[in-house]
């Protein structure tokens, strides 16, 4: 990995999130924000192992993933502001970011939902003999959902080119993993499905990358998928919103301190010389300032947007020319008049 690029990605995500937190009290951002501060390294490490054409599916906490996968920063800020220039034309918000050209599929506000979508996409790639792979991101909360286990089973059954990434930040909203699962050994569970499962405890961007790169290389060389990684990480801010919540009672600041001492953004920056680091930071700050200005200066969607894109806007097919003969049903005479079940078969 190019350390300068890694630092740029990590720093850029951190600063975008800090700017969102700064702007949030102004009420210009009309969207619940689930900030990625503290969790940047997982997205950056994984996306460094992906290539253009590869696909990621994320969650409502996916600002980091969107940016790491190459999502458009200006369109992201505009989406936060509810502007028509947003990545979803102001109709998605923070929880439903999307950038199809970048390979970042739309995210869901319902926990666990995109896991099966990622598996389906990977199956589609395999069916169409496309050379790309899919990464499916979800949190430790999603592993409580039945759809997670259904997805593991089907992904393994069909050996799809997919990497599962569980970002385990220890909490489903405010409920710790230990209050949701008696025996907290996720990799054992996943391994029981026959899927190679690895737990990465360090939070280290380079270690995560090394593991995921190996899996990505294996998939690209034709080895059967999927692979599973449990990446421990830590959410610094409250579940939703711009604030700290260490006074809320469900977790302690002491618990966070080890993770803050292990801040991957700062540690990556320390690997660069001062001039190199400053160059990266100045470029990122300028890009963010321009993106915020773009969002501020963009228009809200017009009234016609309200009912646009409910369905595809397309010309209807012409009317059929069938003349109803007033049949009352029954088994009929059978003179070449197939029953409906045969008609459905024929339609397939």
């Amino acid at each position: 990995m190019n350390i300068k690029k890694v630092y740029r990605e990590l720093f850029r995500i951190r600063r975008v999130e800090e700017e969102i937190a700064r702007i949030y009290p102004s009420d210009k951002i009309k969207s619940p924000v689930h900030l990625s501060i503290g969790q940047e390294a997982v997205s950056v490490a994984v996306c460094e192992a992906l290539v253009p054409g590869d696909i990621v599916f994320g969650t409502y906490r996916s600002h980091a993933l969107y940016l790491a996968k190459g999502g458009d920063l200006r369109a992201m800020f505009a989406e936060m502001y509810g502007k028509v220039t947003g990545c979803a034309r102001g109709k998605g918000g923070s929880m439903h970011l999307v950038d199809i050209p970048a390979g970042f599929m739309g995210t869901s506000a319902v926990v666990g939902t995109t896991i099966a979508n990622a598996v389906g996409y990977a199956y589609g790639l395999k069916l169409q003999s496309k050379p790309h792979i899919v990464a499916s991101f979800f949190g430790d909360g999603a592993v409580d959902e039945g759809a997670f286990y259904e997805s593991l089973n089907f992904a393994h059954l069909k050996q799809v080119p997919l990497i599962f990434i569980c970002e385990n930040n220890g909490y489903a909203i405010h409920t710790p993993q230990s209050a949701r699962q008696r025996d907290v050994n996720l990799c054992d569970r996943v391994g029981a499905y026959g899927i190679p499962a690895t737990r990465i405890e360090s939070g280290d961007v380079f270690e995560i990358h090394r593991h995921v790169q190996e899996a990505a290389d294996a998939l690209r060389s034709g080895q059967p998928g999927p692979f599973f990684f449990e990446c421990l990480t830590y959410r610094w801010k409250e579940h939703v919103g711009p604030n700290d919540d260490f006074d809320a009672g469900y977790r302690s600041r002491e618990e966070a301190q080890a993770w803050m001492a292990n801040d991957q953004v700062r540690l990556a920056g320390e690997k660069l010389s001062d001039p190199e680091r400053m160059e990266v930071e100045q470029n990122v700050e300028a890009e963010i300032a321009a993106a915020i200005a773009f969002a501020e200066n963009s228009s809200f969607p017009g009234a016609s947007e309200l009912t646009t894109d409910v369905y595809e806007e397309s010309e209807q097919d012409g009317p059929d020319d069938f003349v109803w003969r007033g049949d009352t049903g029954g088994h009929g005479s059978g003179d070449g008049r197939g029953p409906i079940r045969d008609a459905i078969w024929s339609g397939c």
Partner: peptide
Amino acid sequence: AMTGVAIGAALS
């Protein structure tokens, strides 16, 4: 999950 798979496949 299979409905989710259908959706993901459609996206692909």
